[in-house]
Amino acid sequence: MKRYGIMHGRLSQIIAQLGHGELVAVADCGLPIPPGVEIVDLALKPGTPSFLEVCDTILTELVVEDFVVANELASRAPEVVNHLRERVGTLGQFVSHSDFKQALPNVRSVVRTGEWTPYKNVIFVAGVAFS
Rank of each mutant, 00 (worst) to 15 (best):
Y4R: 15
S50C: 05
L11S: 02
V40Y: 06
I6N: 13
D28G: 11
N121D: 15
G127A: 10
G9V: 05
V64D: 03
A70L: 11
R10A: 10
A129V: 01
A25E: 03
S12H: 13
F51Y: 13
V26E: 00
F67S: 14
R87A: 11
S75Q: 10
L91S: 12
R87H: 13
S75R: 05
E79I: 03
K101Y: 05
A129N: 05
L11K: 04
H83R: 12
E72W: 04
F51D: 03
E61M: 09
V64I: 11
A16M: 14
H97C: 07
W116Y: 15
W116T: 04
G19A: 07
F100Y: 15
V26L: 04
P35C: 06
C55A: 12
V80H: 04
W116M: 09
Q13H: 12
L23H: 07
S50I: 06
L84T: 04
V125A: 12
G127D: 08
Q17A: 08
Y119V: 13
G36S: 11
G36K: 12
M7Q: 10
T60Y: 03
S109W: 03
A129H: 13
A16D: 15
P78I: 00
E115Y: 11
P78D: 09
Q13L: 15
V81Y: 02
I123W: 01
R3N: 06
L62Q: 12
S12V: 08
D41F: 06
K120Q: 07
V107T: 07
Q102C: 03
S96H: 06
P105N: 07
T48M: 05
F124I: 13
Q17T: 02
Q93T: 04
T60G: 09
E38I: 00
F94G: 05
D28M: 10
S12W: 03
C29Y: 02
V68W: 01
L31G: 06
V88P: 12
S50T: 15
Y4Q: 14
V26P: 00
V26F: 07
H97S: 15
P46R: 09
S50R: 11
I14R: 12
V80A: 06
Y4A: 13
E72D: 08
R108Y: 02
I6D: 06
T48F: 10
P118H: 02
H83E: 14
G9L: 12
V68Y: 06
G92I: 12
V64E: 02
L91V: 01
R112D: 09
F51V: 09
I6T: 11
L84P: 01
R10P: 00
L44P: 00
M7C: 05
N71A: 03
T60S: 13
V54P: 00
P34F: 14
F124W: 06
H97K: 02
I39W: 10
A27H: 06
L62T: 08
Q17Y: 09
C55L: 08
T57I: 00
F51T: 01
T60F: 08
L18V: 09
F100W: 05
